[in-house]
């Protein structure tokens, strides 16, 4: 996973929350908000922010 088109502060906060480069995440709920699970933490992301996070399915990662 890597981030694109996001403000520097938002990237830093996502990273601090555990959404680091190439981390493994599970999408629990798509839409508004998008809920993902990273390392046993559930994180809610607004649609705008979720659109700035690039994710590929695990099988193709």
């Amino acid at each position: 996973m890597h981030s694109a088109e996001l403000a520097t502060e938002d990237c830093a906060l996502l990273r601090a929350l555990g959404l680091t480069d190439r981390c493994l995440l599970r999408v629990c709920k798509a839409g508004e908000p998008c809920i993902v699970e990273v390392k046993a933490t559930r994180i809610g992301l607004s649609r705008t922010l979720a659109r700035g996070v690039f994710v590929v399915p695990e099988a193709t990662a």
Partner: peptide, 8 residues
């Protein structure tokens, strides 16, 4: 408004 991100 800054887009929301929150730990649930």
């Amino acid at each position: 408004a800054r887009p929301m991100v929150l730990e649930l």
